[in-house]
């Protein structure tokens, strides 16, 4: 390299630095994580008021409610994923870091998952109690959310990067992302339903994991390409 005075930086520590910064920002003042978690708690607890307090009905629709609301809560938190950095200029700095755009997208998605969508999976059992969720489904509910939530962050990253330069792009992002969430939703709810109805949740979980892996392959490259366009 052109300046021998310092060694080539280690990409992994740059990556960790970005993940740590984003997690700190997400839990800090005005961060998205508490908002998403609050949205998740409130929206789920609205359903007993709307549908009525019959335990059987609530137990039947609980997997769907929890999954759909987790999905919405993740989208709510996504619109600032890249936009905050774009607006204050730190996205330019990130691009000039030794990491590359795919690495940036990867770090930001990992931070979003750790700070925002993973807490949703952790909070889900508490809400399941509220909905009279059957005991035998708890492990599969948490397991399906753990496997499926990375896909929510990954797919959301595509929408967030495409709308990064769009003012008030939040609604546009909703329209772009929600259809792409359908496979994750189907397999996630399918696994929980299978567990509750004494079926075998494994095939559903395997397909859910496949969806997440496909999202991992596609979304980082897509996000990087969209960010490159946004910087022009």
């Amino acid at each position: 390299m052109s300046h021998p005075s310092h060694a080539q930086p280690s990409i992994s520590s740059v990556f960790t630095a970005l993940v740590r910064r984003d997690v700190t920002l997400a839990w800090g003042q005005g961060g998205a994580s508490l908002l998403a978690l609050g949205f998740f708690l409130i929206a789920v607890s609205l359903f007993p008021f709307g549908v009525g307090p019959e335990p059987q009905i609530l137990a039947r629709i609980a997997p769907g409610i929890i999954w759909v609301v987790a999905l919405l809560a993740s989208v709510v938190s996504l619109d600032r994923l890249y936009q905050a950095d774009y607006e204050d200029g730190s996205l330019d700095d990130l691009v000039l870091s030794p990491m590359g755009l795919v690495g940036i997208a990867g770090a930001k998605v990992l931070a979003h998952w750790l700070s925002t969508t993973l807490p949703l999976a952790v909070a889900a059992p508490a809400l399941a109690v509220l909905l009279n969720f059957p005991d035998e489904g708890y492990w599969v509910l948490v397991g399906s959310l753990l496997i499926g939530t990375p896909a929510l962050s990954l797919i959301g990253s595509i929408g967030a990067s495409l709308t990064v330069a769009v003012r008030r792009g939040g609604v546009l992002m909703f329209l772009l992302i929600l259809p792409l969430y359908v496979p994750t939703l189907i397999f996630g709810v399918g696994a929980v339903d299978a567990a509750v109805m004494m079926g075998d949740p494994l095939p559903h979980l395997a397909l859910l994991a496949a969806t997440t892996l496909i999202a991992l392959v596609v979304s980082l490259a897509a996000s990087a390409a969209a960010l490159k366009l946004a910087l022009e």
């Binding site: 930086p9 910064r21 204050d88 200029g89 990130l94 990491m99």
Partner: peptide, 25 residues
């Protein structure tokens, strides 16, 4: 024109992050 600073962080945190981002240390 944009300064790339995060308002919620102190200047030390902003500068340390920038340094870590660019050099990894």
């Amino acid at each position: 024109h944009q300064n790339g600073l995060k308002p919620g962080f102190t200047l030390r945190e902003n500068a340390s992050f920038y340094y870590r981002l660019m050099t990894g240390s």
